[in-house]
């Protein structure tokens, strides 16, 4: 692939709770935070290990998984949409409980737009057209209103609740 003989062509990333993970420059480039490291003059690809104190090994590998899949699937012509959709669904299914939230944190920290967009869209889909009760339950938001307070808020923004079925 590469014509110039370079000793090492991957970028080393060190998550807070695991071993160093090597990623290709193509993938690293999509993480703006890493990219700014690489562009820094003091960065030497052969020796520098980029520490990521805010990102766990699980989160990092999930993000790399996502980027790998989506950058590869672009090259293949047929049936991309279906398999991509399936991959995305599986990807979300594995993010139980607070892992979605933490992955959002990580994606935000690494500033990787593709993953951030995907996760934010996923959260938005979970909120869209759902009742307040469902959203509270799904995301574990504790209702700290009194009945009167909640009624008051609903009255203030009555238009937003027209046509929404409470379940």
């Amino acid at each position: 692939m590469a014509k110039t003989p370079e000793p090492k062509r991957t970028i080393s990333l060190k998550p807070c709770d695991g071993d160093v993970i090597e990623v290709s420059p193509m993938i690293a480039k999509q993480m703006q935070t890493i990219q700014s490291f690489i562009e820094d003059d003091s960065f030497i690809a052969t020796t520098t290990i980029i520490p990521l104190p805010n990102v766990t090994a699980f989160q990092l590998s999930k993000i790399i998984d996502y980027l790998n899949y989506h950058s590869n699937s672009k090259a293949v012509a047929d049936n991309v949409k279906e398999s991509t959709k399936k991959f995305d669904e599986e990807f979300l299914k594995e993010l139980e409980h607070d892992k979605l939230k933490e992955l959002l944190h990580a994606a935000n920290y690494l500033n990787v737009k593709e993953v951030l967009d995907f996760l934010c869209q996923a959260v938005a889909d979970l909120i869209q057209d759902k009742s307040v009760k469902f959203v509270r339950k799904f995301f574990g938001v504790v209702n700290d209103y009194s009945v009167e307070e909640e009624e008051d808020i609903r009255r203030t923004h009555a238009w937003a609740f027209e046509g929404v079925e409470e379940d």
């Binding site: 607070d98 935000n108 951030l116 995301f139 938001v141 504790v142 209702n143 009194s146």
Partner: peptide
């Protein structure tokens, strides 16, 4: 816990799920 009498409250209480969204930074 001020809304302990709240009928909506029991439902959330019964689940052990930690709040998975509220603590996200406002920018997200």
């Amino acid at each position: 816990n001020q809304g302990s009498s709240n009928k909506f409250d029991t439902l959330e209480r019964s689940s052990d799920i930690e709040d998975r969204i509220s603590e996200l930074p406002n920018e997200i």
